[in-house]
Design a protein around this nucleic acid. Structure first.
Length: 496
RNA sequence: GACCCGAUAGCUCAGCUGGUAGAGCACGCGGCUUUUAACCGCUAGGUCGUGGGUUCGAGCCCCACUCGGGUCACCA
């Protein structure tokens, strides 16, 4: 049923032709509105039965014909309003034209406000215009209001179709629009927060000759004129830190990173990352910034209609736990003094698969993930990671086995990752060279030596705290959403 | 990449141990001047994801493939 028109589509095309034959343009250029639907409803004060003229425009979402009258509902970005058409008011010719209107059509109506006997504010339509004829039926479900809650019957449920045709999903599901409105408010709030603290928003290359700043397989492409390979960035980190060398004290970027890895409910190949770097700050200071930023973002989401009750209550200050001592408490013995074999035995005992082939850092990470991370519900800073797990962070003052790093977890998921950033170019070169050796051995996630970045560091890189926050996951957390696809408008899908 | 589940009318779904396809809504026609999942009557609508196979006979059983969902792996 892709090319051939089904009987519903045929009927709609016939109505379109009938409109054209009557001299009506079924695809308009605009419509002068006086109100959004919700504003129009609100403009009729309680107890008042009749109001003034309004002009509203939107999509017909329900139609109830009654012979010489009709009721309909029109929905726009603000919400819904009922329409009431009367033959004696519109005249026979115009009223007859209503037979050519369908649910899904985009229309503009003018009329006076009234209240029906059930009290619903309604437009008593005096003029109606077709603004865009809908030639393909939208999968509207029937709605009823039960105890003030909208209950939808049938409707558009196939997840594949909802993701592939997000426009239709959005058109019939106001609650889906609300999630993306919340997302936009959240990003806007973060910009406001960082701008207010003197951070400069910058744009760094998506196409990079070398990739770095994280461990992930990249997407590769090629520039024809330069005849060179390029990588889509997996992180913004190394470019943003170059800018701190350049003298910008505080910078941030919100943009897409790309990682050529699996797709599941928390991973999309392109996703939105916020990274920000604050010169002369260490990770302790960044913890206070992150806490304030998350709280601010949560307030913005909470302010979106319909989202309030989905946003978790955040109590400041966020709990802080140390990586080593929290794992030690769960294991019942000192995690760091266990031998590799003992760690492996612990991992196997705790049901971690493939423990026999894991490196020591991987074993530590897996054990921590299973015993500590996954059980965190309230927002919690995990601080001072073992150096084996944190190749990009500065050693902890007074304990070189640890690093000055924290991650923020909530509901078992990572929301932020931050460190006191490495600013020693000699140490950095050694770490790059270690990566390059791994790469030569076939590790696709390892990066090469970034000589330009080292050159920047050698000029003198101020100490700084850096933070990365996955915006998609933050939106998921704050809107209580289980799948990353539900917070990305057009998630990556296989070709149809 | 592995395993499990799914794909039937525009939408949401039934379809028994294999016997020639069903409902509700939407669509079309008729009726109805305050309805709101409007209502009442009538009609139409399907290559059962694709390709093979078994069988007298396949929506149903078998094989392969496509797409999706889930779980796992991968993702410091």
């Amino acid at each position: 049923m892709t090319d051939e028109l089904n009987f519903v589509q045929k009927a709609r095309r016939e109505k379109l032709e009938a409109l054209v034959a009557m001299g009506i343009t079924p695809f308009a250029y605009g419509y002068e509105r006086t109100h959004h639907a919700v504003e129009a409803v609100a403009s009729l004060a309680a107890g008042v039965e009749e109001g003034g003229l309004v002009r509203v425009a939107g999509r017909l979402v329900a139609w109830r014909g009654h012979g010489k009258t009709s009721f309909a509902h029109l929905a726009d970005s603000s919400g819904r309003i009922q329409l009431y058409f009367r033959r004696d008011e519109l005249g026979d010719a115009v009223f007859a034209q209503l037979a050519l209107y369908d649910v899904g059509d985009v229309v503009g109506v003018a009329g006076t406000l009234m209240r029906t006997r059930t009290g619903e504010v309604t437009v008593r339509v005096t003029a109606v215009e077709m603004l865009a004829k809908s030639l393909r039926p939208l999968p509207f479900g029937k709605e009823e209001i039960v105890d003030g809650v909208t209950v939808r019957h049938s409707g558009f449920a196939d997840p594949e179709q909802r993701y592939r045709q997000r426009y239709a999903d959005l058109a019939v599901h106001p609650e889906v629009r609300a999630v993306f409105l919340a997302r936009a408010r959240l990003v806007s709030a973060i910009r406001g927060f960082l701008d207010g603290r003197g951070f400069l928003e910058v744009e760094t290359p998506v196409l990079q000759p070398l990739y770095g700043g994280a461990a992930a397989r990249p997407f590769t492409t090629r520039h024809n004129a330069l005849d060179m390979p390029l990588f889509l960035r997996i992180a913004d980190e190394l470019y943003l830190k170059r800018l701190i060398v350049g003298g910008f004290d505080r910078v941030y970027e919100i943009g897409h990173d790309f990682r050529n890895e699996g797709i599941d409910r928390t991973h999309n190949p392109e996703f939105t990352m916020l990274e920000f770097y604050q010169g002369f700050a260490d990770y302790e200071e960044m913890m206070t910034v992150v806490e304030a930023l998350i709280t601010h973002a949560a307030d913005a989401v909470r302010a979106v209609s319909g989202m309030g009750e989905r946003v978790p209550a955040l109590r400041s200050p966020f709990r802080r736990i140390e990586w080593v001592s929290s794992l030690t408490a769960e294991l019942g013995c000192d995690a760091m003094s266990l031998t590799d074999a003992e760690l492996r035995a612990e991992a196997e005992r705790r049901g971690i698969d493939h423990a026999s082939t894991m490196s020591r850092p991987k074993l530590l990470d897996e054990l921590f993930g299973a015993l500590v991370e996954s059980r965190i519900v309230e927002p919690t800073f995990v601080v001072d990671y073992p150096v084996e797990l944190s190749p990009l962070a500065k050693p902890k003052r007074g304990n070189p086995a640890l690093t000055e790093r924290f991650e923020l977890f909530a509901k078992g998921r990572e929301l932020a990752n931050a460190f006191s950033e490495l600013n020693d170019p000699i140490d950095q070169r050694q770490r790059f060279e270690a990566q390059a050796r791994l790469r030569a051995e076939g590790d696709e996630e390892a990066t090469g030596v970034d000589e330009d970045y080292l050159r920047a560091m050698e000029y003198g890189m101020p100490p700084m705290g850096g933070v990365g926050i996955g915006i998609d996951r933050l939106v998921m957390y704050l809107t209580d959403t289980a799948h990353i696809r539900d917070v990305i408008l057009f998630p990556t899908m296989r070709a149809e």
